[in-house]
């Protein structure tokens, strides 16, 4: 891998990466600064417990207490940031191959001696780096927050493990987006499928807990293997990340093979 496409992709997205790093680090500091007001109000826990089970399930908050630093961090960061930042990852994943193909610039890239598999791998690696940098920036935000805000005593090991599981979920989204974009061939179609897959996967995992039939289908959801909540509670589980890692490898393999076999769009 000579890294020319990787460097170009990173260079093109440097401002987006910077914006996400600053935005999420700022969000973490904001959460920490708000936390003391929550900590002293046990009624928040009662409010949370008063929610219908379906709402609690949608927020993946069945184990935590919101008035603890770990619980609050999970509720306000761990549950919805994968969806929020996931939008950026899906947009980047769609732009990587389907976007370049639709614009026609992929023709020029592939008119050089770069094999197709390398285009896929360099684009994938570049967005992986983007996700990694943003997750690390978030972690730096948490480290800074625990030192700057008294009372916000977060277990940084648990937080790191939670961020690691989040990083894997985001990479699954990325790998899935690239696979879908290669198989669907049209960027708009791929975007629609991805929205359906992510929302469907999230809702299936959340609502499935409340329904015996759907519960059996939950393993089909990639959120089923996202154990960030458990990580924040200090329960380290390795099988979820292992399944995510296998999904990333398998999906990337499918992308490489499918992209290598098919015609480029005119």
């Amino acid at each position: 891998m000579n890294g020319v496409i990787l460097r170009r992709t990173l260079q093109d997205s440097r401002y987006v990466i910077l914006a996400w790093c600053l935005g999420l680090a700022f969000w973490v500091l904001l959460l920490a600064s708000v936390f003391p007001a929550i900590e002293g109000s046990p009624e928040f826990n009662q409010i949370l417990e008063a929610y219908p089970p379906v709402v609690r399930a949608l927020f993946m908050s069945d184990l935590v207490e919101i008035i603890t630093p770990d619980g609050f961090t999970w509720m306000e960061f761990g549950t919805w940031i994968p969806m929020f930042f996931g939008i950026q990852v899906v947009v980047d994943g769609l732009a990587a191959l389907a976007g370049e193909e639709r614009r026609g610039t992929l023709d020029l890239v592939l008119s050089t001696p770069i094999p197709r598999w390398r285009v896929v791998m360099e684009k994938f690696t570049a967005i992986c780096i983007e996700v990694t940098v943003v997750i690390l920036a978030s972690y730096c935000g948490f480290v800074a927050a625990t030192h700057l805000v008294s009372g916000y005593t977060l277990d940084l090991n648990n937080t790191a493990w939670m961020l690691f599981t989040m990083w894997l979920v985001l990479l699954v989204m990325l790998a899935l987006t690239m696979t879908v974009s290669v198989l669907a061939r049209r960027r708009g179609t791929a975007a629609g499928i991805m929205v359906g897959l992510i929302l469907g996967s999230y809702i299936l995992n959340a609502i499935g807990q409340l329904n015996q039939v759907l519960d059996k289908l939950r393993p089909l959801s990639f959120f089923y293997y996202y154990h960030g909540q458990e990580a924040m509670m200090g329960k380290l589980e390795f099988w979820g990340p292992a399944v995510h890692a296998l999904m990333i490898i398998a999906l990337t393999g499918i992308t490489v093979v499918a992209f290598n076999k098919r015609d480029l769009a005119v």
Partner: peptide, 27 residues
């Protein structure tokens, strides 16, 4: 060397950056 019929380029790059990028892809 290849010139497509409907040439698409990267709008945010300068001409020189475009040539550098494609040149480096060619080695």
């Amino acid at each position: 060397g290849y010139l497509p019929g409907e040439l698409a380029l990267w709008g945010h790059l300068t001409g020189r950056q475009t040539l550098e990028y494609l040149g480096r892809l060619r080695g």
